[in-house]
Design a protein around this nucleic acid. Structure first.
Length: 629
DNA sequence: GTAGGGTTAG
């Protein structure tokens, strides 16, 4: 504003002094007024120019476009006496940016001369409006016309390729070839990001190592690449490398922080997450909605729902993603009523929910056994918000019906779905068959699952659990043999517990921990004390085809029990006994769930388990999931 | 005139 006033003063004094204003001075004035957002006034000045040059016209067109006035820009463009390439390109990119690609295309083929910028503008237009195929076909048309792509072309094309679900190998190779030939940091970073988004994290790393003069963007792209490919430990390690290698030259920013926080929430590493939060405050990193959403998610996934609530409430501006984060946070903690309250608030604030909002809401209903409410929301989302349900939403509904015990309804729903059910849907049905001991349906569903993915370990484990739950040990063995024959390995269950900021990991039957003997003995003691309270080991959850004694032994060495016992014996003698927080990579086992209820009562300690689905707060013999899990 | 990195997801 002050700069604009200064400009006005200069303009006024030019007139006062009676200076001769040639077209160059006029153009500078036009440019100044346009850039200060005064395109209306610039237009008056423009009309006073006796012989405007084509640059004057271009500046005015640009000015109208930047103030969002496409109509005025178009009118000027139409009456221009002479159009140079820049005029055409300006108009073309304006159409491209606001998504009017039919107009952009028309202009592109109408223009008498085209240059590299014209091609780039059209390609970028397609790419930014998610019309990736057209971006690529325009690119190849450009190559056929004998035009050599530059940095800008490749940046657009690379970003188009990274968003296509499965780009052809030859396309990727060709683009990477051009990028390597250009070899600038920004282009290589774009390629790195592309590989990361395609899930080719090793290729991404190879490019990263190739960049000699890495800047903040390159580091951030690689860190977020790791984080988005479920490699949180690598993300954090890379951040440490960045700090030790170039602490002076490169300073982490809010984008770095977002990836770090997301990594912490994946690991359930609260202490580390708090450290990042402190870092943000200490270095005054700008706190925006992205960061807030990431923190809300992190604190919730690390078990501190109150911190999530506070951060959410203190944010003055809340975008959809932030609302979604809070909804999801409450959902995984089973706070169904509060989830619905937040959603009502969101509607009152006129924030339009999106597809992800409803995934969170349906999830909450499913975790709380609110089947009717969930079905109601499912139809609201279609009727009121015109959201076409994706496979994820159907998955939520199946899950919802299953957990509410409506197995038949769930199966009918799957049969009537307009989309082909995927393995997640069948998986939800199958695990529900386990809790309702429905062998017949389980076998049918398992067949569907094996058709879709013959090597998925979960199918075999679930089916074997169904058989085990009804004591069909011979069938359990059959499944196990099949697994062996197919060479399917069960993903090992892994539980971690954080003590004094150090993460201790355990796998089932783990004997690698230095204190394993002590841990085993301590658990056996606990079992002796909870059995009289009514605990009965549920051997149906033991996967192995062993005799009764061994079955109980295997059950006693599940990773979550080891983690619990370790936390327990490590804090037994300390005065302050905070809740024990365990993070498990798979779903918590049913027997472990029962055992923990008893332990929380026996020891008067709060136990919090985060499994791959949700949180379980065990307190005084009860779990917050109320049996819906 | 065209331009590389971020949150939420069964």
């Amino acid at each position: 504003m002050t700069i604009c006033r200064l400009g006005q003063q200069i303009h006024a004094s030019l007139i006062k002094n009676g200076s001769v204003l040639d077209v160059f001075v006029f153009n500078s004035l036009l440019d100044m007024y346009c850039k200060c957002g005064q395109s209306e006034f610039a237009m008056k000045v423009f009309q006073g120019i006796s012989e405007p040059s084509s640059t004057s016209w271009n500046i005015m067109i640009c000015g109208f476009l930047s103030s969002g006035d496409l109509m005025s820009a178009q009118k000027l463009f139409d009456v221009m006496p002479y159009r140079d390439v820049s005029s055409w390109n300006t108009m073309l990119s304006a159409y491209a940016k606001c998504g009017e690609l039919e107009n952009a295309k028309r202009l592109f083929y109408e223009m008498p001369v085209r240059n590299l910028v014209s091609w780039n503008a059209l390609i970028a237009g397609f790419s930014q409006n998610e019309r990736f195929d057209e971006a690529l076909s325009t690119f190849s048309e450009m190559l056929k016309a004998g035009i050599r792509p530059d940095k800008t072309t490749i940046l657009s094309v690379v970003s188009a390729v990274s968003t296509i679900s499965s780009p052809g190998d030859d396309v990727v190779k060709q683009v990477v070839g051009f990028a390597r030939a250009i070899g600038s940091v920004s282009v290589l970073t774009a390629v790195l990001d592309m590989y990361a988004k395609l899930g080719r994290i090793d290729d991404a790393r190879a490019i990263f190592d190739e960049i000699s003069e890495k800047d903040l963007v390159s580091w951030n792209a690689m860190i977020s690449g790791y984080s988005q490919n479920q490699k949180p430990a690598e993300a954090i390690q890379l951040f440490r490398d960045m700090q030790s290698e170039c602490r002076v030259k490169i300073k982490a920013d809010k984008l770095t922080m977002v990836s770090l926080i997301s990594s912490c929430s994946q690991m359930g590493a609260l202490a580390l997450g708090e450290w990042v939060h402190t870092y943000i405050e200490k270095f005054g990193i700008e706190f925006d909605e992205y960061l807030a959403a990431a923190l809300v998610d992190m604190y919730a996934k690390c078990g501190d729902l109150d911190r999530s609530r506070r951060i959410f409430q203190e944010m003055p501006r809340k975008d959809v993603a932030l609302w979604n984060s809070m909804i999801k946070a409450l959902a995984i903690h089973g706070e169904v009523k509060e989830t619905l309250k937040i959603f009502a608030q969101m509607e009152r604030n006129s924030v339009t929910p999106n597809d992800i909002t409803f995934i969170g809401l349906l999830n909450a209903c499913s975790h709380g056994g609110f089947a009717e409410k969930g079905l109601e929301l499912f139809s609201l989302m279609q009727s009121q918000y015109q959201i076409v349900p994706r496979i994820e939403h159907y998955g939520c509904i199946v899950d919802l019906l299953c957990r509410a015990g409506r197995l038949t309804d769930a199966y009918d729903f799957v049969k009537k779905m307009p989309i082909k059910p995927d393995k997640v849907i069948w998986g939800a049905l199958l695990s529900s068959c386990r809790s309702h001991q429905n062998v017949e349906l389980a076998e049918e569903v398992a067949r569907k699952l094996t058709e879709l993915d013959p090597n998925h370990d979960g199918t075999y484990v679930l089916l074997s659990n169904v058989y085990a739950s009804v004591g069909k040990w011979r069938d359990v063995k059959k499944v196990r043999d099949q697994m062996k024959a197919q060479n399917v390995q069960k993903a090992p269950g892994c539980s971690a517990v954080e003590l004094d900021g150090v993460l201790h990991e355990f796998t089932a039957g783990d004997k690698t921990h230095p204190r394993f003997e002590e841990i085993y003995k301590a658990w056996d003691e606990i079992v002796k004390r909870i059995k009289p309270m009514g605990y009965e080991p549920d051997k149906g959850f033991s996967l192995k085809n062993l005799d009764e004694v061994d079955k109980e032994e295997a059950l006693n060495r599940h990773s979550e029990k080891l983690a619990l016992t370790f936390a327990f014996i490590s804090t037994e003698h300390s005065q302050h006994k905070p809740a024990i927080k365990i993070v498990k990579n798979l779903r918590i086992c049913g027997d472990c769930h029962t055992a923990m209820e008893f332990v929380s009562k026996l020891e008067g300690r709060e136990i919090i388990v985060r499994d791959r689905n949700r949180f379980h707060h065990f307190k005084a013999g009860l779990c917050s999931c109320g049996g819906y899990w």
